[in-house]
Design a protein around this nucleic acid. Structure first.
Lengths: 245, 245
DNA sequence: TCAACTTGTCTAATAAAATAGACAACTTAT
DNA sequence: ATAAGTTGTCTATTTTATTAGACAAGTTGA
């Protein structure tokens, strides 16, 4: 169990004590140490465990309540409200809706925006095209049961698929759009995974507690001939799901 | 480019502005926007970009200098000191030393401690043994060129490999130890990836800036017959490396 | 040499985080 | 009904984070 957040170097962390307490408690919950409906230890006990003041613990619990992870009732205590963490599978065949099917009732993908731009160095390398070549850029947001679970950006070579964006706007499915365009099946060539703090835009779009951590997946999809067709950058709230390889 | 860290809800984040500025700058560096030796914009310009005070930016730069990411010289500016990020490959055959070979000169794994304990629910499920059954628990720390890159915990069923810990202490290699014990080859059955803030112990062992983000990999290795032989929990500094699937 | 630009170091003021204590309000079990 | 245990809400104080301004000290190129 995490303890002693008030070490001499605690002020050097740049992360407030209440947030670190909230992170620690959330970790116990999504990690399975506490199940749905379980009662958390009383505030006084948590304060002692984390060597912090009860008011600081209360702020952590308030943050967790705002996230929907716990629910606090006067005189009774705090209870685990939302315990599960989604699993997002990554493999040769990675498809968003198939992936989370069964773990959530309602899955949606919204196209936030779409425009043409010139390929950056990273994008060009991934798609095996020239730097500066025209690419379609699609910004999407996916939700599971109304809760945002993914904020993704996809790049597709304009030369190869000039009307991908229009078609995607209609179908809202990468798989279906590629199928319309003659790519019966595609697979995942590589995935790089990193993690960082969410920025302001991501915090808003994913409805996160500010300062939340994101899992970032950088992926290249290829057609059956091995030709790169899609370069994608997906951001997932680390609190909400884990990636399964 | 990240901006406007001082939104109305900025104080709700629990992450200090100087730390978010440091994270944003580090992201530009490890993400390749800035190369080794490049000069960063002057402090006054960074302050304007992030809508923060120059002193706040200075604190962010001081943190990055302490991490070894940048180096600041009076009158000249701040320069990128350590730009690369290691890539840790995850696949069917995941071996620590083969993995980082070529990306670093010196790779070491140290056994921090080792003891017997009763299997937790998660551990028992992974190793397909009974809850509470005896398991060897090994705590290790791995370094690349002297810099800690992984803090890992491994569990092995005591019944199947009673002297795994002793042998591992001698060889410091999971692969070699299993080979001695008659497992010619093993492979990765599953990997779950998540991310969270480092706790105090991890901050110390991995020599991190307090509040740093970890990539956490939860893995099960199996022998050629498909029998689970090792359950491992590895923690990697997200600033220092990315996981490649 | 000089001017322009950069980082380093002070002082000061304000905002927010964290601690401390007291007591009210509510729940539960005896 | 009562006592014990819990969360809710005040006030107050201390420590830290952030902003603000001024000027010193170092670097660079004209």
């Amino acid at each position: 169990m995490t303890k002693n957040l008030t070490t001499p170097e605690s002020h050097l962390s740049g992360v407030a004590i209440w947030r670190r307490i909230a992170d620690a408690i959330r970790l116990d919950i999504v990690g399975g140490k506490l199940a749905q409906g379980d009662r958390l230890p009383p505030e006084s006990e948590l304060a002692e465990r984390f060597s912090a003041n009860r008011h600081t613990v209360r702020r952590a619990l308030a943050a967790l309540q705002a996230e929907g992870v716990v629910k606090t009732e006067q005189g009774r205590g705090s209870f685990v409200d939302q315990a599960r963490r989604l699993s997002y599978k990554i493999g040769k065949r990675t498809r968003f809706s198939e992936n989370l099917a069964g773990q959530a009732d309602e899955l949606r993908s919204a196209l936030l925006s779409q425009h043409l731009e010139n390929a950056s160095a990273a994008c060009a390398a991934a798609l095996a095209i020239k730097i500066g070549a025209k690419v379609s850029r699609l910004e999407t947001l996916s939700t599971a049961d109304g809760r945002p679970v993914s904020r993704a950006t996809a790049w597709i070579a304009f030369r190869d698929f000039p009307d991908f964006a229009e078609r995607f706007a209609a179908s809202h499915s990468v798989t279906a759009t590629f199928r319309e365009l003659g790519i019966a099946d595609y697979s995942r060539a590589s995935t790089k995974i990193s993690a960082r703090h969410a920025n302001a835009e991501e915090t808003t779009m994913l409805k996160l507690a500010p300062g939340a951590i994101l899992l970032v997946s950088e992926a290249v999809d290829i057609d059956p001939d091995g030709k790169p067709i899609l370069y994608g950058l997906s951001r997932f709230p680390a609190d909400l799901l884990e990636l399964v390889v």
